[in-house]
């Protein structure tokens, strides 16, 4: 174990945090962590870095599926509601047209579909990102505060099947980390 390694927080080991000083260093390090086969890890940057999702080997987001499902459900609910109101609950003749005059119901069906899709995008994103979270062990790290300013980080969780305390620290050091920290907490 390198002498530079520090420890933040207290309690059970959560994972390790590697600090990098440029987006390019972060990008290359992410490729190495990806190639080492880790699954429970993440990168942290003050701003979006183009292509980082490829360097991390991220799979396609599943948010669009949630959006489609909720969008279609919203459209179906919108049309269903109007069908039920105008043919079952309170049938009214409007300008001599049939009770179920579907063209008149399309705009509301469309809006309900948009509403469902938008809700799906927001809730799907939050749900799949496990947000909101009130606390995260990484917040124990003093160094990590610079993630909103001028530093770039990779965190690897101890829960990853490939995690091995000294080996993972070495991996981050060899990948160009300027500092590595053990993070404890839950």
């Amino acid at each position: 174990m390198s002498a530079a390694t520090t420890t933040a927080g207290s309690g059970p080991l959560w994972g390790v945090l590697g600090e990098f000083d440029s987006p390019a260093a972060l990008y290359r390090a992410a490729e190495r962590v990806r190639d080492a086969g880790f699954e429970r890890w993440d990168t942290h940057s003050p701003f979006p870095v183009h292509g980082l999702e490829r360097a991390m080997g991220l799979k396609r987001s599943r948010v669009p599926i949630v959006v489609l499902a909720l969008g279609l459900a919203g459209a179906a609910a919108g049309m269903g509601l109007q069908w039920w109101v105008s043919t079952r609950a309170y049938p009214l003749v409007v300008s001599g047209k049939p009770f179920f005059s579907w063209p008149a119901f399309v705009p509301i069906m469309f809006e309900c579909g948009v509403l469902g899709g938008a809700a799906g995008a927001v809730l799907g994103f939050l749900g799949l990102s496990r947000l909101p979270q009130h606390h995260h062990p990484l917040f124990e790290s003093k160094r990590f505060e610079r993630v909103t300013d001028d530093r770039f980080f990779i965190s690897i969780e101890a829960a990853d099947p490939r995690f091995d305390k000294s080996g993972t620290i070495q991996l981050l050091e060899r990948a160009g980390a300027v500092a590595v920290e053990l993070v404890e907490g839950a």
């Binding site: 987006p23 390019a24 990008y27 290359r28 292509g51």
Partner: peptide, 14 residues
């Protein structure tokens, strides 16, 4: 946003 310090070849997809 600028990609400061990011060499153009980093993306590496041709």
């Amino acid at each position: 946003m600028s990609h400061s310090g990011m060499p153009h070849s980093v993306g590496g997809h041709g």
